[in-house]
Amino acid sequence: MRPHPRLAAAALLPLLTGCTGPQSALDPQGPNAASLAWLIWTFTAVCGLVWLLVLLTVGIALWRRRASSGAADEPLRPESATERRKQGVVIGAVVATVLIIATLTLMSFVATRSLTASSGEPLTVRLRGYQWWWEVTYTADSPDRFVTAANEIRVPVGRPVRLELSSGDVIHSFWVPSLAGKQDMIPGRDNVLTFTAERPGSYRAQCAEFCGMQHARMALVVIAMAAPEFESWLDAQRQPAAEPADEEQEAGRQVATGKACAACHTIRGTRAAGTVGPDLTHVGSRQTIAAGTLPTTRGALGAWIADPQTVKPGNKMPMVPLSADELRAVSAYMAGLK
């Protein structure tokens, strides 16, 4: 736990870091998040002003000069005239409160209405939460063009995305602050979240409802791409898994389809068709593995496969005993599944 100079510097500038970041509600990248950010700033301004006014009044009440009357310790007996005057002021303050509250309520109501409205033919993506990863299914007009992936959502810029949220076990909550507010994924219920990304980029999302031991490591990335790029990416995802490029990868495929891996994971185009773990057909093309825990590199894949319970204690992937060669081969194969 060596102190890190950059962290210390960041600690001194808390307010400067407040507005940006890959997962910030105040760094909106889509109309929904933008109107929410505007709402946050407005509420903050109004509420902050009220707060300052109240404190100012308390300050004045404390330090204003008073006519000294009577013994210092003797309790005052309020005069009815001043009491009545104060009564008027208090009533005025209450009326002002009511007005402010009513205005804020109305604003929030209008904002709700505008969030639910969207224009254009949306891209429908099914997102299903599991302990502790996300299954992403891109729908299409024909089921054979559906794509099932995991822990990463790619969306075209400028087109509304309709996320159909569900859960396979406990309650999760999908939250990508840069693009939209959060929406829960509840067993036995179907929720929908619609958002649009306005600029290309990758936006971090995270599970926002406590869902068990690895709640902290249940993140995903929303990657917004230009529409044509997105379409070609989606076409690539529709293809079965890439053939091994060399002998090592071929050996890796033998391991992946012959060992316990295949009982949980699908690699389309091979015998591996398990459905209880994430689809690995194009795992090498994703930015992260294990729901945002590690970057997708060959080394990280190796570390993860070798000992998942140390990287992410409690997750449902067991430590499958592999020899060093098998481990090298299978991580090479996985990294090659672009």
Binding site: S142, P143, D144, F146, V147, T148, R238, T266, R268, A273
Partner: peptide, 12 residues
């Protein structure tokens, strides 16, 4: 027989 299934699902 393939187009009315998700990719690969018709194989099983």
């Amino acid at each position: 027989g393939a187009a009315t299934w998700p990719p690969g699902a018709w194989e099983r």
